Every structure is written in structure tokens, then in C-alpha cells.
Computed example of a mutant assay.
Amino acid sequence: MLHVLTHDILPVFSMLALGFLLGRGGKVSRVEATTLNRVAFLVLQPALILPLIAQLDWGTFRAEALATYALCQVVLFTFAYQICRRVFHREQLESWLLAMAVIFVNTLLYIWPISLLIYGEGNNTPVAAIVAWDAAVSFTFFIVTTDLMAPRESAAPPALQRLATNPVLLAIAGGAALNLAGLALPAPLLTAFDFAGRAAAPLTLFALGVILSGHALRLSPLIATVSGLKLVVFPAVVAIALHLSVPAGVWQDLVTLTAAGPSGAMAFALALLYGARTDAIAPVIVWTSALSLLSLAWLA
């Protein structure tokens, strides 16, 4: 457990921590970090997502495990959204993104690189399956719904035009089309995507750390509730559901490990991009990232 923590988990977490420390020390400003976050969202993440989806071997995935995980996401998202709206009386868009933080794990930028370090290429198929599901379906759903919910100026482009030009959505659609058509990306393109995509996780986590450093981390009832739902309730529900639907083995273990990861940075990134309040989402990201270190090391 200690070796996994020090050699596989903390090196990935260090980029978030470094950004947080440099932000608190005034070495990197919020404006600079916001620009980095936007570059990562619009340029580097598409380069990571497109080849990932294009090269997936869906035949190696267990449909019942993915369906169980997706059902748990739907149930917990609905519950968390109602709690944020009805108990804590938060606005619709903020409640939507806080509920997203409960069920949308930082799979692509955090759990995926950690699982590669621990298990190696090809031995982390369950994690790859959740990454694919979250990138192709969950993330698309939240990008579209957040864009439609966010207030817009009268001069803003129509929703379909905004969505049709979103680089992340284009990368998801392009990767899916190539996969379904059975077409391989040319080697030079794969090299270019790989070169750019490798920077997506560290740059996003670093920028996130800087931006988060400007927020108070005091635990309010809302922050504690959302963090508890993410760190305890969601992985517990996933583990129980998998125990009832999937034979014991690597799929149970690694899907549960994925569910125990911290809240996805994308909930925070979308809040920044669409002008939602971040005073609750930001501490949730920090607390779940820090408190999940030991649980991830134990489950791994």
C-alpha cells in the first residue's frame, strides 16, 4: 500500500499540489492558470480523447459492469442534485455541477495515469472502460446540458452552433466515428496526438491546483455532504451493486477503485467556463483529491 501511494499515486497528485502551492505563494496567478485550463480543455484534451476512443476494443469490456456503474451514476446524481437544490437551496447550474462532482470521477486525468503506473498498459481494461464511458457519454452529456443551462447574452451563438464547434465534443465524435468505421489513424497523426495528449493531465491538474488555491477550504455542511457522497456513498453503492451483478475478480476490483477516485476536474472546469459559482465546487475537488489518497492506495 505504501509503495503504491509513494510511487504511483503521489507523483500524479503532485501536479495538483504543486499548482496549489505556487498559487498560494503568488508565483502563478489565477488569470494565468485560467488560460492554461482553457488551452488544456480546447487543445490538449481533444488530442488525448480522440485516439483513446478511436482505438478502443469494445469487445474486451464487460457490458454488465459498465451498465451497473452507469446505473449507480444516475441514482447518485439524482439524489445529490435534489440534496443541493432542496436542502441547500443552490442555483440550478451549480447544483447540477455539484451533483456531477459526486458521480464524475477524475478518470481520464487522474485514475487513468495512476492505473497505468500500477498495472501497466493492457492490464487496466476496467479503468479504460470507465474512461471511455465517461469521455464518450457522461462528459458529452454534461457539456451539452451545462451549455444549455448556462445563461447567455442575446448576441451569443445558438446552442447547436456552440456545441457543433466544441473541440472536446468534436474529438469524442471523431474518435467514435473512426472506431465504428474500423479506420486507423495514420502514424504521424497518432504521434502528434500522443505528444500533445501527454500534456493534458499534468497541465490541467496544475492549472486546477492554482485556481483552487484562491478558494477557502473551510468545510461547510454543503461541502462536507457532497464530499462524503463522493468519497463514501458512491464507491460503496458501486461496490455493492457490482457484488450483486458481476463475478468477483478484476472488474469488481478496478471499477470500485475507479469509483473511489476524487471528483472530476471537469466539473470545476465547466463551472469556470460557464460562469457558475465555484466556492463550493472548488473545495470539494481539493478535499476529495486529498482524502482519496489513502483509500486509493488501499484499494489498489
Rank of each mutant, 00 (worst) to 15 (best):
I223R: 10
A184L: 13
S227W: 07
P151D: 11
R162P: 03
A196G: 03
L229N: 02
T140A: 12
A216F: 06
V168S: 04
A239D: 06
L169I: 11
A136G: 10
G228A: 10
F195M: 15
V226I: 14
F141A: 14
P126I: 09
D194G: 15
A164F: 14
G209I: 00
H215G: 01
A187E: 15
F234C: 06
P126F: 02
A132W: 06
A173T: 12
L178T: 09
A192Q: 03
A196N: 00
P188R: 06
A132V: 14
I172C: 08
T191G: 06
H243F: 04
A184K: 10
I240K: 03
L217Q: 14
A150Q: 06
L244K: 00
V232E: 01
Q161P: 00
A224L: 13
I211L: 15
P186C: 10
I172R: 06
A236H: 01
A241Q: 11
A200D: 06
P186K: 13
G120M: 11
G182F: 15
A236G: 07
T146H: 00
L212S: 03
V233K: 08
L170S: 04
L222I: 05
A176E: 13
T145M: 14
A236T: 12
R198D: 08
L183N: 04
L203D: 01
P126K: 01
P151E: 14
L160A: 15
A150W: 01
A181T: 10
S213A: 04
T225V: 12
F206K: 02
P158V: 09
L148I: 07
H215C: 01
W133E: 12
A128S: 14
M149E: 08
A207F: 00
D134W: 07
A164K: 11
G122N: 15
L203R: 02
A129W: 05
A192N: 06
P167I: 00
L222V: 10
D194R: 13
F234V: 11
T140N: 05
L180Q: 13
L190N: 15
G214S: 00
E121I: 13
L203I: 08
A236M: 09
A199W: 12
A159Q: 04
P186M: 11
S213T: 00
S138K: 11
I223W: 09
P202S: 05
G209C: 01
L222E: 03
A192L: 09
N124A: 15
L185R: 10
F193A: 03
V131T: 14
T165L: 10
F193S: 00
